[in-house]
C-alpha cells in the first residue's frame, strides 16, 4: 500500500480519450497546486502543442511545458512528453528525451516514464493511469506499487477507452480505482501534505 502523505511527484499516463480525462482531472485541482506533474499523453506526431498548451494553461499550473531534453522540473508545473519521443528521469530533478524504439507500440511510452520516475522517487511517487486503448502503463504502474508508491487507476467503466486501466487492474490491485473527480481529490490531499513538508 502506498501513501499519499509521501508524494513528491505525480506521473500520469493517458491515451485514447486522454484529453477529456486530463481536463477532467485538472479542473478539480486546487489553486496553487504545488506537486510537479509529468504526463505521457499519446498523441499524433503532428499534434498542435500550441493548442494543448492554451487549453491546459486554463487550470492551476503556473507552467505548462512540453518537455525538452534536460528539462528541470519545478513545483507548480505540469510537463508533457513531446510526441514521438520517450521521456525519462536522468536524476531526481531532470527529465531527458530519448528516441529509443517503440515500447508497447508507443513512443512516448507510459511504462518508460513510470519505470524511470519510480527508480528515483520510489515511495514518493504517485502514478495515475487513465483512459486508453492499449496496455501501455500497466507494467510501469505495477512497478510503482511494488516500490511503495501510490497508484490510482481510472475506473474502466467510466473511461472512454477501458483497455488501459483494465490492463493494470488485471495484473495487480491499485490503491484506488475511481472516477476522475476522486482522483483529483486524492491529488489535492497529497498536495496538502506536500505543502507542509516544503
Amino acid at each position: 500500500m502506498g501513501s499519499i502523505k509521501q508524494t513528491e511527484l505525480i506521473v500520469i499516463g493517458a491515451s485514447q480519450g486522454g484529453y477529456e480525462a486530463l481536463c477532467g482531472i485538472l479542473e478539480n485541482l486546487v489553486k496553487n497546486f504545488l506537486i510537479p506533474v509529468v504526463v505521457v499523453y499519446h498523441r499524433a506526431k503532428n499534434s498542435d502543442w500550441n493548442y494543448l498548451h492554451e487549453q491546459f494553461s486554463r487550470y492551476t499550473f503556473k507552467e505548462v511545458r512540453e518537455i525538452e531534453n534536460y528539462e528541470l522540473i519545478k513545483p507548480r508545473s505540469i510537463y508533457f512528453a513531446p510526441p514521438d519521443y520517450h521521456v525519462l528521469f536522468e536524476d531526481r530533478k531532470t527529465l531527458v528525451t530519448s528516441f529509443d524504439d517503440y515500447v508497447n507500440y508507443s513512443r512516448p511510452s507510459i511504462d518508460i516514464l513510470f519505470e524511470s520516475a519510480c527508480s528515483w522517487y520510489k515511495k514518493n511517487l504517485m502514478g495515475i493511469l487513465l483512459t486508453g486503448a492499449n496496455n501501455d502503463g500497466a507494467k510501469g504502474l505495477h512497478g510503482i506499487a511494488a516500490a511503495g508508491g501510490y497508484t490510482a487507476v481510472q475506473n474502466p467503466v467510466e473511461a472512454l477507452a477501458p483497455k488501459m486501466p483494465q490492463s493494470a487492474i488485471e495484473i495487480f490491485l491499485p490503491d484506488t480505482v475511481a472516477g476522475l473527480k476522486e482522483i483529483s481529490n486524492l491529488m489535492n490531499v497529497a498536495n496538502i501534505y506536500f505543502r507542509e513538508k516544503i
Binding site: L88, F89, E90, V96, S98, D100, I112, S116
Partner: peptide
C-alpha cells in the same frame, strides 16, 4: 552517455 537511456539498454 545519459545514464537513464544507457541503463535501460
Amino acid at each position: 552517455y545519459k545514464s537513464s537511456s544507457l541503463r535501460r539498454r
